[in-house]
Simulated assay, not measured.
Amino acid sequence: MQYRLFCSILCSGLTLAAGPGLSHEFWIEPEKYQEVLGNTVVARLRNGQGFKGAEQPYLDHRIARFEVRQGAAAAPYQGRMGDMPAFTAELAQDGLAVLIHQTRPQTLTYDTWEAFQAFIDHKGFGDIRKQHQARGLPEAGFGEQYTRYAKSLVAVGNGSGSDTATGLETEIVALANPYTDDLSQGLPVRVLYQGKPRPNAQVEIFAKAPDGSVTISTRLTDAEGETAVPVMQGHQYLLDAVVLRPAPEGKDYVWESLWAALTFAVPAE
């Protein structure tokens, strides 16, 4: 009974904290982005702003997909209800590991247009208000459904290998390996939506320095859905790109947002 009560309170709090109306990001944060082969890889799920956020537990009813990819091999990850950290596993293979986490959709309600407009402005969606009005929608008391698609790159052993498209509805794919490749021209990435490059998409870049300070910048993708992310040695990075689209007819919400996130680190040497 106490466990059920704890989960009820916890899940309710997560719903409030995870609302993207305040532009909260959701990401996977490894304890170590480079791990010795044979050691346990530990990663946390976090939700927050400015690359700082609250740790989220493993909640199976909130998870649509959770897996690890190394090369061509993919394995689903199964944790225990309430686990914090949410991911703990030994990876027995050398190479780049891609951790993948997709949430189940959740919904929220905007009580004012101003709250939705702040989200629109932050993510660079342009004049959504005209679209909203053209659909005859109210400017208060309307709903949005949101889904998170997070990836993280972890170097196991030699860290060799490459990131690839994983079939998420939207995702950010690293076109170079941050642990083994030359990043003097930045880390090239491609933003995908429904398997196709997403041109003119805003990529928000959160760069965390060794002292914990975070700088935030944005870049737009080109016609091929690509951009180069400037990086510095010894820094951790969170990249974020969001799709906003009208909801299908007949839903009790009117907009859908799809949040792609990618985390990685650049070695100090």
Rank of each mutant, 00 (worst) to 15 (best):
L220R: 12
G167N: 00
Y179L: 11
L183S: 03
G234K: 03
L183V: 09
E171N: 13
D181G: 13
S217T: 13
N200F: 11
V191Y: 01
L187A: 06
L238C: 03
L175M: 14
A241W: 02
V191F: 01
M232C: 08
D181Y: 09
D222E: 08
H235Y: 12
V203R: 13
T215E: 04
I172F: 00
A241E: 03
T166A: 08
Q194Y: 08
L192C: 14
R219P: 15
T227Y: 02
R190A: 14
L239H: 04
S213E: 13
H235V: 02
I216L: 13
E226M: 05
I216M: 15
H235W: 09
R190F: 03
N177A: 02
L238N: 02
S213A: 15
F206Q: 12
E204Y: 07
T227Q: 03
A228F: 11
T215F: 05
I205L: 07
L192Q: 07
D181K: 10
P199I: 10
A223R: 13
R190W: 05
V242E: 00
A176F: 00
R190Q: 15
P210Y: 13
V229G: 00
L183Y: 10
S217G: 15
I205A: 11
R219Q: 09
E204L: 15
P230F: 06
D240S: 11
A241V: 06
S213Q: 15
Y237S: 04
E224F: 10
I216C: 04
N177R: 01
P210I: 07
E169D: 11
T215W: 08
Q236A: 10
G167R: 04
E169C: 04
V173N: 00
G225R: 04
P188V: 04
A228W: 08
P188I: 07
P178D: 06
L175P: 13
V173H: 00
V231Y: 12
G167H: 03
P197I: 02
A223W: 12
E224A: 15
A207K: 10
Q233G: 06
R198G: 10
G225A: 04
A201I: 05
P178Y: 11
T180W: 03
